[in-house]
C-alpha cells in the first residue's frame, strides 16, 4: 500500500465523524522504485492532505518532507523527488491502519488494506 492510498482512506464506521487520517502501525515497510513523473505529482498535489502525508512518511522512516508545503514548491526538483518518494515508493506491506476515533484496526496484509466493516459497524 502506497502512502497515496493511505491519504485517500478514512474510517467509515457508523457514528465516526472524524475518521481521517488513519494511524499507521508498521510491521513491515518496503520501498519499490516508481518512474518519476512531475506532471502526475503536480496533478495530485492539490488532492493530498499534506500533514497526513508528512506524518505517515515519518512513521515509515522518511523525514525529508517539509512540515508545510504550497504549490510554489512544485518548481523545486528536490521537493518533487521527496514528494514522489513519500507518495509512491514507500509501501506498507504488513501492519494496520487504526481509526483515530475508535481505535478499530484495519489490517494490512501483503500490501492490501482490508476496510470491510463488521455488520454492527455499518
Amino acid at each position: 500500500m502506497r502512502l497515496l492510498t493511505h491519504n485517500m482512506l478514512a474510517s467509515n464506521i457508523k457514528g465516526v465523524t472524524n475518521g481521517f487520517p488513519l494511524r499507521i502501525e508498521v510491521e513491515k515497510a518496503i520501498e519499490k522504485q516508481v518512474d518519476f513523473n512531475p506532471e502526475f505529482l503536480k496533478n495530485m498535489f492539490t488532492k493530498i492532505h499534506w500533514k497526513a502525508l508528512v506524518d505517515a512518511s515519518r512513521i515509515m522512516g522518511f523525514a525529508e518532507l517539509p512540515e508545510e508545503a504550497d504549490s510554489s514548491m512544485l518548481e523545486s526538483d528536490d521537493f518533487l523527488r521527496n514528494f514522489h518518494h513519500a507518495l509512491l515508493e514507500l509501501h506498507l506491506e504488513e501492519g494496520a491502519l487504526v481509526c483515530p476515533e475508535t481505535g478499530r484496526r484495519f489490517p494490512v496484509n501483503k500490501g492490501i488494506p482490508n476496510m470491510l466493516l463488521h455488520e454492527d459497524e455499518v
Binding site: 492510498t5 485517500m8 482512506l9 478514512a10 467509515n12 484495519f106 492490501i112 476496510m115 470491510l116 466493516l117
Partner: peptide, 13 residues
C-alpha cells in the same frame, strides 16, 4: 488494491 465494499473508506477523500 483495497478489500472493501464498493468504495467504503474512500468516499470522503
Amino acid at each position: 488494491l483495497i478489500s472493501t465494499d464498493i468504495a467504503l473508506g474512500l468516499e470522503q477523500r
